[in-house]
Amino acid sequence: MKKLEGKVALITGAAVGLGEGISTVYANYGAKLIMVDLDPNVEKTAERLRKEYNAEIITVVANVAHKEEMIAAVKKGIEAFGEINVACCNAGVCRLAPFEEFTDEMRDFHIDVNIKGVWNTCQAVIPEMLKEGKGSIVIASSVTGDIVADAGEAAYAMTKAALVGLTKCLAVEYANRNIRVNCSQLGYARTPMVEKMAVESNPEDPESAIQSIAVGVPMKRLAKPTEVGELFAFLGSDESSYLTGSQVVIDGGSTLPETMSIGTN
């Protein structure tokens, strides 16, 4: 039996990037999927997964920043599959700018998607999980904000660090009701979001910005979205049944070196 067989998972930001990687791994492990994204191309991604894995999938075009849309997405998932066992709160955004030039609109964009989006998703799914008497929530935080930060990432760092606090509080609040809440703390993966950040960092040569990231990672590469998906699958499955409130770093060792110039290597 596959590790996610019999489970219904709601995945936000599912059309591309990390969300596509998470959805791919979940489909491979036998989960039924509710793929949510603001991008209508989420259906195109879902169709690929149906063909490759014979997966049962519904798609919902919705904005995680709008609570009523997430409640409606959950309702559609319940109508289709009868329950929701796992929620992967993956949808997120990052825009770079010097702090003194950061507009209120840019700040609020991060808050609306990165914080309110996770908040709304959790508030939409937890009542259904309480009805079932169990559930697992996996929140996509980051090493950025809680552990490290780069210049220009003030809004992203602030919002991703906030998700660590939300993870811990929800884990405590729902532990005795059999709902587990954990978060991933990713370094860098090769995704459209990172490629956009590379353009913002070095418009003339964005690929060099990406390669420079890899130089600072002991494993000398960025993560594949499906590698992140494997972590989400573990945290969503019964294999992690005694884990809650955990912060799991997945960064190829990038936060480990004290320097990049001292040592025997």
Results as ranks from 00 to 15, higher is better:
F109V: 07
H110D: 06
H110M: 10
H110S: 14
H110P: 02
I111G: 07
I111K: 08
I111A: 10
I111E: 11
D112F: 13
D112W: 10
N114W: 04
N114Q: 09
N114C: 08
I115H: 06
I115S: 01
K116D: 07
K116W: 10
K116E: 05
G117Q: 02
V118R: 00
V118F: 01
V118Y: 01
W119K: 15
N120E: 13
T121Y: 15
T121C: 10
T121P: 14
T121H: 14
T121D: 15
C122G: 01
C122R: 04
Q123P: 00
A124W: 01
A124Q: 07
A124V: 08
A124N: 03
V125P: 00
V125F: 00
I126S: 12
I126W: 13
P127D: 02
P127F: 00
P127R: 04
P127E: 01
E128A: 10
L130H: 07
L130N: 04
K131T: 00
K131M: 03
K131A: 08
E132D: 11
E132F: 15
E132P: 03
E132M: 14
E132C: 11
G133K: 05
K134S: 01
G135Y: 04
G135K: 05
S136P: 09
I137W: 01
I137D: 00
V138P: 01
V138T: 14
I139F: 07
I139Y: 10
I139M: 13
I139V: 14
I139A: 05
A140W: 05
S141V: 12
S142P: 14
S142R: 14
S142L: 15
V143M: 03
V143Q: 02
T144V: 10
T144R: 06
G145S: 15
D146R: 01
D146F: 03
D146L: 02
D146S: 05
I147F: 02
V148F: 12
V148S: 11
V148T: 09
V148G: 07
V148E: 14
A149Q: 15
A149G: 15
A149H: 14
D150Y: 13
D150S: 04
D150V: 14
A151E: 10
A151Q: 14
G152E: 13
G152N: 13
E153K: 13
A154H: 01
A154L: 13
A155E: 06
A155D: 07
Y156N: 02
Y156A: 02
A157E: 04
A157D: 07
A157S: 03
A157L: 10
A157M: 04
M158E: 11
M158F: 15
T159D: 03
T159G: 09
K160G: 07
K160A: 01
K160W: 03
A161Q: 02
A162W: 09
L163I: 12
L163R: 08
L163Q: 12
L163P: 07
L163A: 03
L163F: 05
V164D: 08
G165M: 06
L166I: 14
L166K: 12
L166P: 05
T167V: 03
T167M: 03
T167Q: 08
K168G: 05
K168M: 05
K168S: 04
K168Q: 02
K168T: 09
C169Y: 09
C169K: 13
